[in-house]
Amino acid sequence: KELVLVLYDYQEKSPRELTVKKGDILTLLNSTNKDWWKIEVNGRQGFVPAAYLKKL
């Protein structure tokens, strides 16, 4: 499993997105899109802007 660090808080703006908090370490599911990465948070899957995340 690949992990990502959340660099900035992000509030979901659609049902396909997820809310994340700065400092969270989460599972990366897909990073093929350069702008939006798919991650998992508490069993939910969704997208967060790639600029808000850093691969560990």
Rank of each mutant, 00 (worst) to 15 (best):
L5D: 01
S14P: 10
L7D: 01
L5S: 04
K22L: 04
I39A: 11
Y52R: 05
Y10L: 01
K38C: 10
V4F: 03
L7I: 09
D9K: 03
T32R: 12
K22N: 05
N30A: 11
K22Y: 05
L53K: 00
L28N: 01
A51C: 12
F47E: 04
K54L: 15
R44S: 07
N42D: 15
K55W: 05
L53I: 04
L56P: 02
G46P: 01
T19I: 04
W36L: 05
R16H: 13
I39E: 00
G23Y: 04
K21L: 09
W36V: 04
P49A: 03
E2Y: 12
T27D: 06
Q11V: 13
L18S: 04
G23K: 02
V20P: 00
Q11A: 11
K34E: 13
E2F: 12
K54A: 10
F47C: 09
G43L: 06
K55Q: 08
R16L: 14
R44H: 12
Y8R: 13
P49F: 02
K55Y: 10
R44N: 13
W36G: 03
Y8S: 10
Q45S: 14
V6E: 00
V48T: 02
L5Y: 11
L18K: 03
A50Y: 02
P15R: 08
W36K: 03
S31I: 06
N42I: 07
K13G: 08
A51H: 11
A51K: 12
A51F: 12
N30Q: 10
Y10V: 01
L3Q: 12
N30H: 08
L26P: 04
L28M: 04
E2T: 15
E40Y: 06
E2M: 13
G46N: 02
G23H: 05
L7R: 05
L56S: 03
R44Q: 11
Q11P: 05
I39D: 00
L56I: 13
L18P: 01
V41H: 15
K1L: 14
K54N: 06
I39T: 09
P15C: 09
L3V: 09
G23W: 05
F47K: 03
A51R: 15
L18E: 02
T32W: 09
T27R: 13
I39M: 06
L5T: 05
K22V: 06
K34M: 11
E40D: 06
K54P: 00
L3P: 04
V41T: 11
S31G: 12
K55L: 15
E40L: 08
Q11T: 15
S14K: 08
S14Q: 10
E2G: 11
R16A: 11
V41Y: 15
G43D: 09
Y10D: 00
E17R: 08
Q45A: 15
T27L: 14
D35W: 15
T19C: 05
N33R: 09
V20T: 02
D24L: 09
K1S: 12
T27P: 13
K38R: 13
K38H: 13
N33D: 15
L56M: 12
N30K: 07
L26H: 15
Q45E: 12
K13P: 06
L29V: 15
D24Q: 15
K34G: 12
G46V: 06
S31A: 14
Q45N: 10
E12L: 14
V48D: 01
L3M: 12
D24W: 15
E17I: 04
E2K: 09
K34V: 10
K13R: 13
N30P: 03
L53P: 00
A50P: 05
S14A: 10
D9R: 03
Q11H: 14
V6N: 00
L3G: 03
T32H: 13
P49G: 02
T27A: 09
K1N: 13
K22W: 03
Y52F: 11
T19H: 07
K38G: 05
F47R: 03
G46I: 06
I25Q: 04
L29Q: 04
V20R: 00
L53D: 00
N30Y: 08
W37A: 02
V4G: 02
T27G: 06
R44V: 10
Q11L: 11
T19P: 03
K38Q: 13
P15W: 09
P15I: 08
V41S: 14
L18Y: 03
Y10K: 01
L26A: 15
D9S: 10
D24Y: 06
N30L: 09
Q11R: 11
T19E: 04
E40N: 04
W37T: 01
V20C: 06
T32E: 14
V41N: 13
N33I: 06
E12H: 14
D9A: 06
Q45Y: 10
D35I: 14
G43R: 05
K38P: 01
V4N: 00
V6G: 01
R16T: 11
K55G: 04
S31M: 09
F47A: 03
L29K: 05
